[in-house]
């Protein structure tokens, strides 16, 4: 696997999308050897984790939960 292959597969890897065992091992082996790709990987992982955790951080209003419960009760 070279740097170009890695960039192509990196998002699949980060998103937990199905890769073959062989592809997954090749990615991990490349990341251990190549500093440039490893930095890119670390940065991408950090960036999307920051987006994910901030995007999941809204709390749902209690009033909406009770509203939904009473809607269901009336079905």
């Amino acid at each position: 696997m070279d740097c170009k292959d890695l960039v192509e597969k990196l998002y699949f890897y980060l998103d937990g999308e199905v890769l073959t065992e062989e592809e997954r091992k090749a990615i991990e082996a490349h990341l251990e050897l190549c500093r440039k790709c490893c930095e890119k990987y670390e940065f991408e992982r950090f960036l999307w984790e920051m987006v994910r955790s901030n995007g999941r951080n809204d709390s749902i209003p209690e009033a909406l939960i009770s509203r939904i419960e009473s809607v269901i009760a009336q079905f």
Binding site: G55, R56, D58, S59, I60, P61, L64, I65, I68, I72
Partner: peptide
């Protein structure tokens, strides 16, 4: 439904 409400809301 109830466990999915926070995700549906956000």
């Amino acid at each position: 439904l109830i466990p999915e409400l926070p995700a549906l809301f956000r």
